[in-house]
């Protein structure tokens, strides 16, 4: 039997609370009104051509960078998926959306934002993401300290609670003060991107169901590659790799046909990645 790596934390452990504190800041407003009705749409892209293309390039690309290029390409045909939306009256559709790429940093994902203004070309964007891979380890992970038996003080708890309530209220009612809302949208876009891309394939995840936090309108999740067995031309069974993609989008704003067209566009670019070069 294995030895214990971590023992149980005590209730109200301050170090655990400190670790979660940062999450609470990030996720403040995790009440239902701040969520969009997130529908999950899945499609798979064949990988044969994609694998050849990304490995034969002068600067080979990883899966995440390739999908980011395809996503950027698809956004040119429908920018609605990279817009920010307050849930009712304010829809901001940027000309050059920034893409946030999820990076696993231990207990919480960190986001690497690639500016849409700077990298409007899909392949430039992909190269930038690929080149930034080496910077990723320098992103500070959330400290994960051992537990303690001390209890958090009531004052600390109340302070955190007040901070969170303030953030929640601000997010929910900032439509009353448009400059405040604009500031929130701008901060959101610069820190998290207009649309996010996460690759869960590195963790072996084969299926995912996500939800959508406003003001995002959609997110793209890449899962672990799958092998599909089908009869080949000579009658023998052959196996071919496919890449499953999940688009989580706001069902309230986008009908399913539009979401399918958008995701098909991403799949199209991954099926025949040369179209990304032809564009140039």
């Amino acid at each position: 039997m294995r030895t214990f790596e971590i023992s149980f934390w005590d209730r109200d452990d301050p170090s655990l609370s400190a670790m979660l504190d940062e999450r609470v800041d990030m996720l403040a407003g995790l009440r239902v009104p701040n969520f969009a009705a997130g529908a999950n749409l899945k499609m798979t892209a064949p990988m044969d051509e994609l694998n050849r293309w990304r490995k034969n390039r002068k600067h080979p690309l990883g899966i995440t960078a390739s999908v980011a290029a395809a996503l950027r390409w698809a956004l040119e045909s429908d920018g609605l998926f990279a817009s920010l939306f307050d849930g009712r009256d304010n829809l901001l559709v940027p000309d050059n959306p920034s893409i946030g790429v999820g990076v696993d940093a231990g207990n919480a994902a960190r986001i690497m934002v690639v500016s849409g203004e700077e990298y409007s070309d899909p392949l430039d964007l992909a190269d930038k993401i690929e080149a930034s891979k080496r910077d990723i380890p320098t992103i500070t992970p959330v400290p994960f300290s051992p537990g303690s038996k001390e209890k958090a003080s009531n004052f600390a708890k109340r302070k955190r609670w007040a901070k969170m309530v303030k953030q929640e209220l601000q997010e929910r009612f900032d439509y009353l003060l448009p400059p405040l809302q604009k500031r929130r949208f701008d901060t959101w876009a610069s820190q998290r991107g207009h649309i996010q891309l996460h690759n869960l394939g590195t963790h072996g995840v084969q299926e995912f169901k996500g939800l959508l936090r406003r003001p995002w309108v959609s997110m793209l999740w890449v899962l672990e590659k799958d092998e599909i067995v089908s009869p080949g031309d000579s009658g023998e069974f052959v196996s071919s790799p496919v890449l499953p993609l999940i688009l989580v989008y706001a069902q309230e704003l986008i009908p399913v046909d539009r979401a399918c067209t958008f995701l098909s566009k991403v799949v199209e670019a991954l099926t025949d990645p040369k179209c990304l070069e032809d564009r140039r």
């Binding site: 995790l30 963790h203 995840v205 996500g210």
Partner: peptide, 17 residues
């Protein structure tokens, strides 16, 4: 096929994975 539903407030997908 085994799915883990987790509370998004406590962690992100990689930790659940």
């Amino acid at each position: 096929p085994t799915g883990l539903d987790y509370d998004q407030r406590i962690c992100d997908a990689p930790a659940a994975a």
